[in-house]
Amino acid sequence: MHFSPGREAWRRFRRHRLAVASAAILSLMILAVLVGPMIWQVPINEIDFTARLKGPSWSHPLGTDDLGQDLLARMLYGGRISLAVGLAAMVVAILVGTIIGAIAGISRGSVDAALMWLTDLFLALPQLPLLLLVIYLFRDSLKEIAGPEMGVFILIVIVIGGFRWMPVARLVRAQFFSLREKEFVEAARALGASTPRQVVRHILPNSLGPVIVAGTIDVAAAIIAESTLSFLGLGFPPDIPTWGRLLYDAKDYLDFAPHWALFAGAAIFLAVLTINFVGDGLRDALDPRRVM
C-alpha cells in the first residue's frame, strides 16, 4: 500500500499512544487558556480578604491565594503567558539556529569554523546565571521602552531563545552536510539553480524534520526556563501571574495552603510532560532513522 509522506508520518505518530494522548491533553490545555478566561469571567486581581487561602470550592474551583484572588482565573491568564513565552522563545531559537546552521552548512571553510566555534562557546556558557545577569541589567530600560508587560515579555523571549539556538544550529548544519551532496541537489545545481535557491527550495525543506522535533522539545525547555526565572523572583512582575510566578508566591504558604503551589506546579509539569511526549512521537514520525 502506498502512503503520502504526511500520512505516513501521521501513521507512525499514531502508533505512539502516549504521544497521541499527550497531544489531546495539550490541545485541551491550550483551548482552556485561550477560551477559559471568556467563560470563567472572574477578574484575576479581585481582592477578597474574607476568602484568603481557601482550598478548592464551588465559588473558587482551584481555591484562592493570600489576597483572596481566584486561582482558576489567575492560572488561566498566566497559562496564556507561560505557553506564549514557550512558543515565542522556540520560534526565536529555531530562526537563529536555522540561519546560523544553514550558513555554516553551506559555506564550509573558515566561516563554518568560526560559526561552529561560536556555537560551542554558547554551549559552554552557564545559561541560567547569564539569563539572570541579562535580565537584571536590561529589565528596567526595556520596561521604559515597551511597557512593563511587553518589555519583560520581549526580553525573556529573546534571552531564552538566544541561549537555546545551538542544538538547532548543529542539527541543521549536519543535515546540510549530508543533503548538499545528494543527487537531487546536484541536479538542481546542474540546472543552474543559484545557491540561495538550492538552500531554500531543496535543502532546507528536507532538513526540517529533526528541526521540528528539536523545536517541540525547545517549547518545553523554554516554559521551564521562564518558570525558573519567575520562580526566582526575576521573571514577570507580581501582577502578571505566570505559572512560575504563582509558584514563587505560593512557596511561603506551603504549610497551610498547599493547593496553591500544587495546582501551579502541576500545570507546568503537565504542559512540559505532554510537550516532551509529543516531541517523542514526532521524532518517531519525522525522523525515521532513529526508530529501531
Binding site: 509558584l247 498547599p258 507546568i268 510532560l273 511526549f277
Partner: peptide, 18 residues
C-alpha cells in the same frame, strides 16, 4: 524518565518539602 525530566527542579523541591 519522562516524568523525571519533565518535573522542574523547583517543583520537585517544593513537593519534597511538602
Amino acid at each position: 524518565t519522562f516524568v523525571g525530566f519533565s518535573l522542574p527542579t523547583f517543583f520537585t523541591g517544593l513537593l519534597f518539602i511538602l
